[in-house]
C-alpha cells in the first residue's frame, strides 16, 4: 500500500476505535504501530504529561522504544523532553551529532540501533500535553511529506485523548490525562501478574493482554483491571489474535 492509503486506513481504524471500544491505550498503541507501517520510521511511541506536568510513558510500537522512552524520563533529556518543554517539533536530529545535546540519551539510542530521531508535540489550546516520538535506524532526513503526515497523526492522538471519555461525562483535560496514565499503570500491574503466573516476558504479557482485548472486543484496560481484581485468570488469556477478519486487516 502507498503511504497515502496506509494513512487513510489508519485514520479509519482509529475513528472506528474511537466509536467502538474507547480504550485510550489501545488507540495510542495502534497509532504507534501504524506510524511504523505508514511512515519511514522503525519505532514509534507516545508520552503524555500528567496533570501535574510529569511526562510519562503510555504507548509504543516496540520494547526497545519503550525502554528508550523510559530512559528519557529517568535522565530528563532527549528529543521527547526537548519537544515537550518547547512545544515545538524536533525533527531530523542525527544521533551521531547529538552527543553534546543529549550526552546520556544519544549513545544509548545508538546502542539500540537508532540513528535519527523525531519528536512531534501533542498540543491543545496552547498547552503541550505530550509527544509522539519517531525513531529511525537509517541516517539522513525524513521526507517532508512523512513529517507532515506524522504531525497529522499526532493531532489524531490528541483528539483521541480528548474524545475517549467524552461519552463518560468527562469534565476536564486533566481528568482525561489522569485516566490515560492510570490505565497504563493498571496494565503494568497486570503484566507483572501475567509474567509471573505464566512465566513469560513482559512484552509477551502485554501481547496476551492485547490479543485478549481484541478477540473479546474489550478495552485493554478493562482486561488488565480484571486480571488485577482476580476476576480473570492469567492462564485464561488468549495467546494469539484469533479473529481471522481482524488478522487479515493487520
Amino acid at each position: 500500500m502507498s503511504r497515502e492509503s496506509l494513512i487513510v486506513s489508519t485514520l479509519v481504524e482509529l475513528a472506528d476505535n474511537l466509536v467502538d471500544s474507547f480504550d485510550i491505550i489501545n488507540i495510542l498503541t495502534t497509532l504507534s504501530d501504524r506510524c511504523v507501517e505508514a511512515l519511514e520510521v522503525d519505532a514509534a511511541g507516545v508520552l503524555l504529561a500528567s496533570p501535574g506536568g510529569e511526562l510519562q510513558f503510555v504507548a509504543s510500537s516496540s520494547e526497545s522504544m519503550r525502554v528508550l522512552e523510559l530512559f528519557q524520563i529517568q535522565t530528563n533529556e532527549g528529543p521527547c523532553m526537548d519537544c515537550y518543554r518547547s512545544g515545538v517539533a524536533v525533527v531530523n536530529v542525527a544521533l551521531s551529532e547529538a552527543n553534546g545535546r543529549w550526552p546520556l540519551f544519544a549513545p544509548r539510542a545508538i546502542k539500540h540501533g537508532f540513528h535519527s530521531v523525531h519528536s512531534l508535540p501533542l498540543r491543545l489550546r496552547g498547552r503541550t500535553i505530550g509527544a509522539l516520538n519517531l525513531f529511525r535506524t537509517l541516517q539522513g532526513p525524513m521526507e517532508d511529506g512523512d513529517i507532515a503526515a506524522a504531525q497529522g497523526l499526532a493531532h489524531v492522538a490528541t483528539i483521541a485523548i480528548l474524545q475517549h471519555r467524552a461519552m463518560l461525562d468527562a469534565t476536564s483535560l486533566n481528568e482525561q490525562l489522569d485516566h490515560a496514565l492510570t490505565s497504563r499503570i493498571v496494565i503494568e500491574q497486570a503484566k507483572g501478574i501475567i509474567a509471573e503466573a505464566t512465566q513469560c516476558r513482559m512484552d509477551q504479557a502485554f501481547g496476551r493482554l492485547r490479543a485478549h482485548s481484541r478477540n473479546h472486543n474489550e478495552g485493554i484496560t478493562l482486561v488488565a483491571s480484571a486480571i488485577v481484581a482476580g476476576t480473570l485468570q492469567a492462564n485464561d488469556l488468549e495467546y494469539t489474535f484469533g479473529d481471522p477478519v481482524k488478522q487479515a486487516v493487520l
Binding site: E54, F57, E188, Q189, G192, I193, A195, E196, A234
Partner: peptide, 19 residues
C-alpha cells in the same frame, strides 16, 4: 523526587502478588 513510581514498581508488585 518524582510524584509517581517508575513502571518497574508496578510490574514488580504484580509479580510479587502472585509469588
Amino acid at each position: 523526587g518524582q510524584s509517581t513510581f517508575d513502571f518497574s514498581v508496578h510490574q514488580a508488585s504484580g509479580i510479587l502478588s502472585v509469588q
